[in-house]
């Protein structure tokens, strides 16, 4: 049972993170190497809510969403927008996000140290699993919530993008920013929104992580290749690709490692991060457009079939 919890919670969290990464990449063309920092911030919001304020961890969900969203928005407005105005290259933008990641790792570790020293709370390699509510049959609430968040995200984004005027403008701005602007759409607002949303979602992912796994600032570095892998497998262009890619990479990390342990022994667990890396390389070599490209190919085949 535990492997199912492990696998699905991790995969859902990863999928939420991939959606956020894909969102800002697709909308503002920035591969955000500091995306994990927003998740770790959410993790510490969970720790503060639960151990310092004494509230339910779930109260941290809106708090983490707001906090991570705001930090992400600020980073976009204060750094990324300025660099983009100066027509910096994509590599310069990446370096800026890496720099922000390093900066945030400093901030988060200071936060961790301060929590420990100020409130005598374990703030590294901590887990809030014991504070979670257990439903019938030992089913942890976080399991249900993780999946609910992912499903809600998928439906919510579908509704936002395809059923609202705002979403329509978002899609328009993604496809052709210049045209959108000449037609009166304030794309700055839409781009800012995407960073807020992306950061906020990462914050929520962080809270969920803390409820099941061990939370630590070092996760920022460890998990980054996994969310790149998930997003690339998904194609880095569509929200649904990101969800599928995240789930796929997340599940193969957990289940793949467990399977390998059965064959090779426990030591192989240490090498788990190699799995997403392989997934990423394989995708880039075989199908650089990821699952999204696969869908397009299948669609075209079917069209051809019909025509023939």
């Amino acid at each position: 049972m535990i492997i199912i919890y492990d696998g699905l919670i991790y995969a859902s969290v990863l999928a939420v993170l991939c959606v956020g990464l894909t969102l800002t990449y697709k909308i503002t063309s920035v591969p955000n190497f500091s995306h994990m920092a927003f998740a770790i911030l959410g993790m510490y919001m969970a720790l503060i809510t639960s151990k310092v304020l004494g509230l339910s961890v779930y109260a941290a969900l809106p708090l983490a969403f707001a906090a991570s969203g705001l930090v992400s928005l600020l980073f976009y407005l204060a750094v990324i927008r300025i660099l983009q105005k100066k027509k910096s290259s994509v590599i310069s933008l990446i370096i800026a996000t890496l720099a922000f990641d390093i900066f945030m790792i400093g901030v988060l570790n200071i936060l961790a140290d301060s929590i420990r020293n100020g409130f005598q709370v374990l703030s590294r390699d901590f887990t809030l699993r014991s504070t979670d509510i257990v439903l019938a049959d030992g089913l942890p609430l976080v399991f249900v919530v993780s999946i609910a968040v992912l499903v809600g995200l998928a439906l919510g984004l579908y509704y936002l993008l395809y059923r609202t005027n705002y979403g329509m403008r978002m899609r328009a701005s993604i496809e052709n920013e210049t045209l959108a602007r000449t037609l009166g759409i304030d794309t700055r607002l839409i781009f800012s929104m995407s960073w807020f949303l992306s950061g906020g979602l990462a914050g929520i992912a962080g809270v969920l992580m803390a409820l099941w796994f061990q939370g630590d600032p070092s996760l920022a570095m460890i998990m980054l290749p996994s969310i790149f892998a998930g997003s690339i497998v998904g194609g880095f262009t569509s929200i649904y690709g990101a969800i599928l890619g995240g789930l796929l990479v997340g599940l193969s990390e957990i289940i793949g490692t467990t399977a390998l342990v059965d064959v090779f022994g426990y030591w192989i667990v240490q090498y788990r991060p190699i799995i997403p890396f392989i997934a990423m390389i394989a995708t880039l070599l075989v199908l650089p457009g990821g699952l999204a490209q696969l869908v397009t190919i299948i669609r075209q085949r079917r069209l051809k079939g019909k025509n023939a």
């Binding site: 005027n165 329509m168 403008r169 899609r171 328009a172 496809e175 052709n176 210049t178 045209l179 959108a180 000449t182 037609l183 759409i185």
Partner: peptide
């Protein structure tokens, strides 16, 4: 614009509604 003057992925109605 000279080129790319409609949103390719949006339907006609959506293009007009935008």
């Amino acid at each position: 614009a000279q080129r790319k003057n409609v949103f390719q992925e949006l339907t006609l109605l959506e293009n007009l509604s935008v």
